[in-house]
């Protein structure tokens, strides 16, 4: 009698625990097809803000042996702590694509997220994607960039903002150009922004901003430039330059 009661209690506890746990994580999706490759359609290398969803959803495509999209393949998204995906896993649609909205975590920096799908043998095919989250300082830098820098430093023209880059005799470096900018130390970047190109024997077409922007504004711009660098910036500019 006692044993029976104990067994019932245990069963209830276990099932109770299970149902509680399984609520946030629905049973993993069963694929009805498998692909041989997973590729990015769009949504990688976006610049977002901490805790916020990215502007554009991440779209990945699962391709079959013929190189075209496979419908019904299971795609799983995963990322570091704090990153959320809606949905976190799904089956590809008729064109072989899965679309997921990504929210970044609470820390500023680079987030490596991974989209994966099993192939026919059950091996995981992985597609790593980089996304960037801006914190307070980088956000300030991003805003100032939009106001003061982007017209010359961004080659892209939009109807509301025509790029001035082509009008300059020395082409400015886009801020994503990590190959060049990562080698310049923080102190040099601050000097060139504050005192203009001539401070480092560079073109006078880069004007001095030190009498227009505050020191903290310029520090924020530097932190933004570091945040969006591609390839990523490794801290310690001088050390990096010596490599």
């Amino acid at each position: 009698m006692k044993r029976a009661l104990l067994a019932i209690c245990t069963l209830m506890l276990v099932t109770g625990g299970c149902s509680h746990k399984s609520k946030p994580q629905p049973a993993s999706i069963q694929p009805i097809a498998n692909g041989t490759a997973i590729v990015e359609s769009s949504g990688g290398k976006q610049i977002g803000y901490i805790g916020m969803p990215l502007d554009q959803p991440v779209v990945v495509q699962v391709n079959g042996a013929s190189g075209s999209g496979v419908a019904g393949a299971a795609v799983n998204f995963s990322g570091p702590t704090g990153v959320t995906f809606t949905p976190a896993s799904a089956l590809t649609d008729s064109s072989g694509q899965v679309t997921s909205t990504v929210s970044l975590g609470q820390q500023a920096g680079r987030y490596k997220i991974v989209a994966s799908t099993p192939d026919a043998s059950g091996k995981k095919l992985e597609l790593p994607l980089d996304e960037i989250a801006l914190g307070y300082q980088q956000t300030l830098g991003a805003q100032l960039n939009g106001q003061y820098c982007i017209r010359c430093h961004d080659p892209e023209s939009t109807p509301l903002r025509v790029s001035n880059m082509d009008n300059l005799s020395v082409k400015p470096h886009p801020f994503t150009e990590g190959d060049t900018l990562n080698k310049i130390s923080d102190a040099d970047l601050i000097a060139i922004i504050s005192h203009g190109g001539p401070a480092l024997n560079k073109s006078a077409e880069m004007p001095p901003w030190g009498y227009t922007l505050s020191k903290s504004d310029i520090a924020a711009l530097v932190s933004y430039i570091r945040a969006v660098a591609d390839p990523p910036y490794e801290s310690g500019g001088l050390v990096y330059a010596q490599k």
Binding site: Q147, Y148, P207, P208, W209, G210, Y211, T212
Partner: peptide, 8 residues
Amino acid sequence: GTIEPNQH
């Protein structure tokens, strides 16, 4: 608020 930098 003008974006013309003050060139000192």
